[in-house]
Nucleic acid binder design. Structure first.
Lengths: 320, 320
DNA sequence: CTTGAAACG
DNA sequence: CGTTGCAAG
């Protein structure tokens, strides 16, 4: 059920400037030239406004499950920046967080004692303190919760939590960044294979929702500067192909499914070079659904006004 | 020429509480109990107000040289905290800074371009970036300037600048901290010997002023909690003895010379435990004079209202 | 640009 | 407690 085809067209006619790849930096830092190029005006930024929530599925059923995912880039700093106030306003049934960068014992009381979510699950890096880490906070108790993807090699960095609910699995993930200079691209490729296999295994038992920072912009429409970033972490052919293979395995990118042509819709902006104010960003955060859940899909939102991290939250509205 | 004997008496009658040494921390961190002890009231802090400047020497000559010394604990942060505004107000002829923690290439323009001091000298650690470092800024050009104390072993950390003026040498120093657990006390003892020998050598040519963070509280009167700090960096018998030997070599602690009984006069307070608001501090910063300069001594000030570091500035008024 | 931890104080 | 360079993003 594709939506908004006509409304999209109006937004997309803006100039797609030929912004050459400059420098060698990764993941958005090379995205924008530091000065206006010779003779060119600094183009007016093309902002993006996410439309009002659709709260019913195509068949008319009302959403009964709201899931929010947010890469908080340091949970303690994010709490200080009032990220939880936004969460209380949004009031999801499940809140998934990535890059918590916080050992369980160092979690702020403001979140560990949050009464809105009586059921809280944390997974941190067992090696480096303050690195990676994900969390899942639930209003209702899952049937069960597991950590990692069942492979020693991948489960030391606190990147995956899986919760089983009556009618679906919810997996939240912080996919490994390929790194500056793509130093970790090989590992990422291994991860992509193993993670896909983990998801396929789960999916045989029950449909699933995967959410989180998947650290890839899938297609050119998913980042501001595709041309300049083909050699940068998050937009290499390998990473894009990894995501394509996930979809080929029967999963659906909920946002792109609903809005196939919607451009300038991003969930991450590097802190550098005022990228966010210019909406020079990437769509790295996703809700990916099993085919069986697509009929219940109501909306897939990008909450790009919410501040507190270099990512914004995304929210899924679903009938389950 | 001792001053203020009578006025001092009134201030000193406050209760010197028996504050036991607690914990193992260094340099003031162990100075105050974390809670009030059983049954004891948390005593009212004994503050200290430095009296008005005396601007003439005992023989009536007016001061013609004003030198300020300040351990800035990170020059860049200190500049952001408006340390230079205070300096402009104070308007010394020479400004000596310690713990600049800044490579010359990273110095803020606000200080490198400061027109009040056309002559600027910098010495940073050649090994670890952002460690140690001293500076000297002068209104008039010195006859010559040298760095270090002429011993390879001591001159890698940017701790000493010596400027020759017509009638005296000015040495500014950031003396090595003996470290938590006194891990560097042995090195400090070697330093003390070699530095004293350097100063004695200089002194044979011309009288000198030594200023800076000498990282020792000489006598019990020079810190709030002498009892609890005898095993801590800055108040070990070895460090105190080192300073005594410097005085025995013919030098004078200008502040203590003028104000032999003045208590609660400190130039450093650990950032921890609200020490500064309670005036739980140490006198670690000094102007030390050759005997020949003592007759020209007008005043030795502790500017304990100036904020921007865990040390406050000190100022010397002198006839040269 | 921003986070967190580590070293140092 | 607060600064710095560091690794990471």
């Amino acid at each position: 059920m594709k939506r908004g085809k006509k409304a999209e067209k109006e937004k997309v006619e803006a100039v797609e400037a030929v912004e050459a790849a400059e420098g060698e930096e990764d993941n958005g830092t090379a995205v924008v030239s530091k000065k206006a190029k010779k003779g060119k005006e600094p183009e007016a930024p093309i902002l993006y406004e996410d439309p009002p929530d659709v709260t019913a599925a195509a068949d008319g059923r009302a959403a009964n499950m709201k899931i929010t995912s947010w890469n908080v880039d340091g949970l303690r700093a994010w709490v200080k920046k009032k990220g939880l106030d936004w969460v209380r306003e949004e009031s999801p049934d499940v809140l998934c967080l990535q890059e918590t960068k916080c050992a369980e014992k160092s979690l702020p009381a403001e979140i560990t004692s949050m009464p809105e979510f009586p059921h809280k699950y944390w997974s941190g890096s067992t090696e480096k303190e303050g690195y990676s880490g994900v969390a899942m906070l639930c209003k209702t108790e899952p049937l069960s919760v597991t950590y990692g993807i069942g492979q020693e090699e991948h489960d030391k960095e606190g990147r995956v939590i899986t919760a089983e609910f009556p009618s679906f699995f919810l997996v939240t993930a912080y996919v490994p960044n390929a790194g500056k200079g793509l130093v970790r691209l090989d590992y990422r490729k291994t991860w992509d294979v193993d993670f896909r296999s983990y998801l396929s295994g789960l999916e045989q038992r029950k449909p699933l929702v995967l959410c989180g920072d998947l650290n890839v912009a899938h297609e050119e429409i998913d980042l501001k500067n595709p041309k300049g970033n083909k050699k940068n972490a998050g937009f290499t052919a390998d990473e894009r192909e990894g995501f394509s293979q996930l979809l080929a395995a029967g999963f659906t990118d909920s946002f792109r499914h609903l809005y196939p042509d919607r451009a300038y819709a991003y969930s991450f902006w590097t802190y550098m070079m005022n990228s966010r104010s210019k909406n020079v960003g990437w769509r790295l955060d996703y809700f990916v659904l099993s085919a069986g859940l697509v009929p219940g899909l109501c909306d897939s939102k990008i909450r790009n006004k919410a501040m507190g991290s270099d990512h914004c939250p995304i929210t899924l509205l679903l009938v389950v």
